[in-house]
Structure formats: structure tokens, C-alpha cells
Amino acid sequence: MTTTPDAVGLDPVDVQAAVAALARARSVTVVCHVQPDADTVGSGLALALVLHRRGVPVWVSFAEPAELPASMRTLPGVRYLVPPAEVPRAVDVLVAVDCGGVNRLGALADRIDGAATTLVIDHHRSNTRFGAINLIDPSAESTTSVITGLLDAWGVPIDAEVAHCLYAGLVTDTGSFRWVRPGTHRLADRLLATGINGAEIARALLDTHPFGWLTMLSRVLGGARLAPGVRGVGLVYAFVRAADAGELDSEEVESVIDIVRTTAEAGIAAVFKESGTVPGRWTVSLRSRDTGPGAADAVDVARIATGLGGGGHRFAAGYTAFGSPEDLIAGLLNALG
């Protein structure tokens, strides 16, 4: 096994176990989390490209929504994506990527029972370690960073197609490199050196929206509210109702949190997104920021989300809730204390 700077946060024993499981696999299913982002899809497709080249049948899927968000449809390897109904019931290895818990697999959680081995690859500190093998690095910027360390340990070269998928997760989970650690830019440079167009990848994933997104924003942001006394740093929140979202992809709705979180008067931000298919169900995105000693740097939103049935990172987390908007706000305020 080769240890690289990108794999420093990984347990060598876990890495060896993951490499061994994938090396001997004769069939692999890769499950991404529901409402997929570029980190989970990029991780899944990077693995699929590598496994396919080794002659291993591989299926990549996510439970919902029905279609891959438009911004990710140019990622290499999308041909290995299949609808949930086409995911086999029995495989040698099932790999869950960027999934902090079984609940993030959605309806595909039932495929775990048919897998001879389950491998979880993730970077969420709140991960429940539900796999037989758990390759978790909470210090990693993205799950694609963890995948990079795994491929290095496996001795698999990273070409432009694989690098494209890995960079997609890196650029999105770091917020275009706003949230980095030592080694982040070194990894980005390594991936860019394969010849991928980093600017075009970032533009497609982060800076392109349909016109309807503007209309949705005008309605949602007009209803945003500020609670300045919460936790001593303030909470800003907004609701995205199903009628506001209309026909927009889930990724357009998810992007609202990145605008709401810029509010100067609040150290904590929340966006409640109504399900268009399940009455009363909302997915909630939480963000916090470090505004100095004793302020929002003490607010661990992963802890808050975990207490509400979700999980995530210290400064970015989420959960699912049911009820009216009033119930949701009351529940969050109670959790925040």
C-alpha cells in the first residue's frame, strides 16, 4: 500500500481492507445518497470508471429524485448510472459513497442485505459506520478526496476522466476552495495536471442556473426571517415550498442555502425545503460560520442535525423533518437551545 499526502487521515487497516474487497469483487453496486450532489455522484462515477476498466460489472444509482440534476450530466461515467429498479439484489460488494447513515440511501437501503460485503466511503464526522468496512476520513474536504487516497493505495492511475469526477466533488464541497485544509490545493493541482478544464467544471456545477431559479429566489428570499438572539449569534432562515420550486431540479433548490448563509447578522442559517411528493416532509439544510471566540464557532450544526435525525459536518449539516413551518421552526429553535 502506498501512503500519500491525500490519504493521511485514513486508517491503513481500513484502506487495506477496502482495496482487498474491491480487488476481489466480481460485481459492485455503488449507491449515492438521496438528492445527490457532485461529491457523491463524482465519487460513485470515479469508482465505476476504475472498476469497469478492470472488467468488473458495476451499477451506480441513487434512490431519488428520478433524474440526475442537469449540472452533473456531463460527468464522465454517467453511462453507469441506472434507475433504482435496475440495481441488482445481490452483488459481491455494495459501496455507499458520501452517505453518513443508512437513511441516506433511501429506498436502496434494502440492497445492503444482498451484498456479500458492504463498504462505506465517506468524510462526514457523524457517519454511523454501517458498513462491514468503513473508510472514513472526517478531516477530508470531500469524499472524492477519500476516493483519491483509496485509488493511490490500490495503485490505480488517475487519468482525466477519473480526475474530472474527483475534481467535481472537491470544487463543490470546498465551496470553490473557500473551505480548505493543507494539501487541498496540492490535490487540485494534481487533478488539473491530467488536462481537465477546472474552470468549465466549476462553471457547470456552481455558476449555471435556469431563468426560473431567479423567480424562485425572489419568492423565497422575500420571506426570509432573522432571529438575532439565537445562540448569541443569530439565526436566519427561509422556506422553499413545493410551489416555489415548481419544475426546478433539487440542486437549484439546494443552492438557496448558499445565499441565505451570507447574511452578516446571523452566524447560523437554515433553509427548509418542502417535498413535492411526500406531504408534510421537509429537508433542512443548516450552515454555521466561525465569527470569533464564543460565537458561532461554538455552534456545531452536525450535532444539532444529528439530534434531529440527520448529520453532516460541523459547519454544514442537514436533516429531514415533518410538520408545519411553525412546527419546524419550533423544533429547530428548541434544538439550538
Rank of each mutant, 00 (worst) to 15 (best):
I136R: 01
L47E: 09
A202L: 04
V240E: 05
D300M: 12
D39K: 03
C99P: 07
G312Q: 09
R203P: 00
V60M: 01
S61M: 05
A140S: 08
G198S: 13
A224N: 00
V299N: 05
D327Q: 14
M72P: 11
R241I: 03
R104F: 09
L235C: 10
V180E: 05
V162L: 02
D110N: 13
R190V: 09
A25S: 14
R219H: 12
V19N: 02
A25E: 06
T215M: 00
A63V: 05
V82Q: 03
R203V: 07
I259S: 02
H164Y: 12
V30A: 01
V220Q: 07
N103K: 06
D258V: 01
R203W: 04
T144A: 02
I201M: 07
R111D: 12
V162F: 00
D122Y: 05
V220H: 08
P293L: 11
D110S: 14
S176W: 02
W282F: 15
L187F: 12
T128S: 15
E67Q: 13
P36K: 10
G101L: 03
G331V: 07
G323S: 10
T208D: 04
T118C: 14
S218G: 09
L45Q: 06
H164C: 11
R261W: 00
L248E: 06
D14P: 01
T208F: 01
T117Q: 15
E67W: 05
H124F: 05
I304Q: 01
F62Q: 04
S285C: 06
L119C: 06
G222Q: 12
S288Q: 09
L135C: 07
L10V: 08
V256N: 00
E200C: 03
P65G: 08
L170V: 11
A204K: 06
A153N: 07
A107V: 08
G337T: 14
Y319L: 12
A296L: 02
G280A: 11
G232L: 10
L45C: 04
D244K: 14
A63L: 04
T283K: 07
A298S: 13
P182G: 07
D14F: 07
E86L: 09
P138M: 04
R181H: 12
T208G: 00
E251L: 02
D152E: 15
G294F: 09
E64W: 12
R190A: 13
G276Y: 00
V93F: 01
A269G: 13
A199L: 12
D290M: 05
T172F: 00
L328G: 04
S288P: 04
N134L: 08
L68V: 13
T277L: 09
D92N: 04
G114R: 11
L81T: 06
L170I: 12
G331E: 12
R314H: 14
G309M: 08
V91D: 10
T277E: 15
P182T: 10
H123S: 09
T3F: 00
R181C: 00
T40H: 03
E265H: 02
W179T: 10
L68N: 10
G106R: 06
A266H: 06
E274I: 11
R178S: 08
R89D: 13
T184Q: 06
P293C: 02
W282T: 13
F322N: 11
L221F: 11
A298H: 04
R54G: 12
R203E: 14
L187D: 06
S61L: 07
R186K: 10
A85F: 01
T29N: 15
R219Q: 13
